[in-house]
Nucleic acid binder design. Structure first.
Length: 469
RNA sequence: CGGGGUAUGGCGCAGCCUGGUAGCGCGGAAGUUUUGGGUACUUCAGGUCGCAGGUUCGAAUCCUGCUGCCCCGACCA
């Protein structure tokens, strides 16, 4: 089994081999609960309807500041960072290049594509002190195209995929479901630039495969579903949907999709990705918006027909010269002819993913984080603070795990055991090491796996060896 | 954007109909007690009752306007 702190294969392995510890300590910030900022709510705020929203509020992950606008408290922010980092690593692996564009954009830019007037009240418009019209970016096609055209003029510099992870604002008529449908949200948006349609198709495939890996690393089974392509047409648009009871859209797919293999980290993005895409798009998969019952029944045997609910966590699409033509983002081909660069864009709802992860991973007691995104990998509960043996055992375990570079939260508060159990279960750390006089009387501590509820008594040394490599 | 709710201490709520010094539970502080799944008790702190007007001797309560938030629909990463 792989224990390397630098290896990102662990989340997936853990999902497929439940019960085996796999810790991914990045970035490790060991913490004493007495020094942390973790405002747990015992009762559920009434405004929270959906489960992930309730749990995020109760676990002290977020605080609502306005409709659809949230402050990310330390625990929530840690998860958000871990999700962000996975997205970043997989984009980088696929050859995309990170930059950072501003949240505010000039209206003038959006007028070039006609989108300033077309976008509607969903776009937040602002004026500065000089009465210049600005907007809080709901997306960045216009700006990235502006950047691209300023510097790139030759096919020799292509292909390029640029991305950033930045806050967006869409003034939704009705924000709800906590971070799943906020007005302000964190999104990874990537943009590809190619000389022609076949090349653009290859960029699309790169992002498609990268998306399979991103969600897989978070322990999510995201199903690419053919989506509406808008005015440009073509067959190149997919939504990535994860199955969850509380999903917003109905989902219909072939059960076999759920077992398709995910390309591992050794994948060569420069190779032909067509076979992978074919595998993943061969079987029926559609949201209720584009669902074709007749075709579903024709192509999918009854026992493989899956009818569930799903949450959209990503979308990829090809848009050709929709922006490059009006904005005159032109590149010269090998034939010496200047033509609009061919583009696509690729979004992942990063902050939404945090909510979606909870929707897909919880029980009555609270959240159950997949290892790869857990805010802390392990929680240590000292059931009797002040008891010499308990304090010493906890200190030893905490010190060893900390030294091993593991993200560990040590509950050193002087509280009742019941409160500690309830809190640890609520915040959903994958493993709990429970230390108290009863166990220590037999020189044992208890290691509990949150997901399965399995408990195992072992010595302090064994508990440390279990997690620290 | 249509429809419906709601606004009282950090959180969850009662009080409003039938105006008369603002209450309960949780949480917080101090203490006693307890100690392996949210312990019990005592004491304490904490609220211009969303905002602005109006009616009245007197308004959380009645009237008018505004705002925030939530839910149901149509729309969206």
């Amino acid at each position: 089994m792989c224990f390397s702190p630098l290896c990102d294969c662990l989340a997936r392995k853990q999902v497929r081999q439940p019960g085996r510890p796999a810790i991914r300590p990045l970035p490790p910030v060991p913490m004493l609960l007495s020094r942390y900022f973790l405002p747990i709510l015992r009762e559920t705020p009434k405004e929270a309807e959906i489960l992930s929203h309730r749990l995020m509020l109760r676990a002290g992950m977020i605080r609502q500041e306005a409709a659809g606008i949230y402050a990310w408290l330390p625990l929530g922010f840690k998860v958000l960072q871990k999700v962000t980092q996975i997205v970043r690593e997989e984009m980088d692996r696929a050859g995309a290049i990170e930059l950072l564009m501003p949240t505010l954009q000039l209206a003038e830019l959006w007028r070039e594509t006609g989108r300033y007037d077309a976008y509607g009240p969903e776009m937040l418009r602002i004026k500065d002190r000089h009465e210049r019209e600005l907007l809080y970016g709901p997306t960045n096609e216009d700006m990235i195209t502006e950047i691209f055209r300023a510097y790139v003029h030759s096919y020799r510099e292509l292909p390029k995929i640029l991305y950033h992870i930045q806050w967006k604002f869409r003034d939704e008529q009705r924000p709800r479901f906590g971070v799943m449908r906020g007005r302000e949200f964190l999104m990874k948006d990537a943009y590809s630039f190619d000389i022609d349609e076949p090349a653009a198709r290859r960029s699309y495939q790169r992002m498609f495969v990268a998306y399979l890996r991103i969600f897989d690393r978070m322990g999510l089974r995201a199903i690419p579903m053919r989506a509406e392509t808008g005015p440009i047409g073509g067959d190149l648009s997919h939504e990535f949907i994860i199955l969850a009871e509380t999903g917003e859209s109905g989902v219909f797919c072939d059960a076999d999709i759920l077992d398709l293999p995910i390309p591992d980290e050794s994948i060569d993005y420069d190779a032909d990705l067509e076979p992978i895409i074919k595998d993943w798009t061969r079987l029926y998969a559609a949201t209720d918006e584009v669902h074709d019952p007749a075709r579903f029944e024709r192509e999918t045997p009854p026992e493989r027909r899956v009818r569930r609910r799903g949450i959209e966590v990503g979308q990829v699409f090809y848009f050709g010269d929709k922006y490059s033509r009006p904005m005159r983002a032109l590149v010269t081909g090998s034939d010496g002819v200047e033509r609009p660069v061919i583009g696509g864009s690729y979004g992942v709802g990063v902050s939404r993913l945090v909510g979606a992860l909870i929707e897909a991973n919880h029980d009555e007691a609270g959240i159950i984080w997949p290892n790869s995104v857990a805010p802390f990998a392990i929680g240590i509960a000292n059931l009797k603070v002040g008891d010499e043996a308990s304090d010493a055992a906890c200190a030893k375990i905490y010190g060893a795990l900390k030294k091993a570079g593991i993200d560990v939260l040590y509950d050193d508060l002087d509280e009742r055991p019941g409160a500690k159990f309830a809190r640890l279960d609520l915040i959903g750390l994958p493993y709990q090491i429970i230390v108290g006089p009863k166990g220590l009387a037999e020189a044992k501590v208890e290691v509990k796996t949150r997901r399965t509820g399995a408990r195992e008594m072992m010595s302090v040394g064994e508990a440390i060896a279990r997690f620290a490599v």
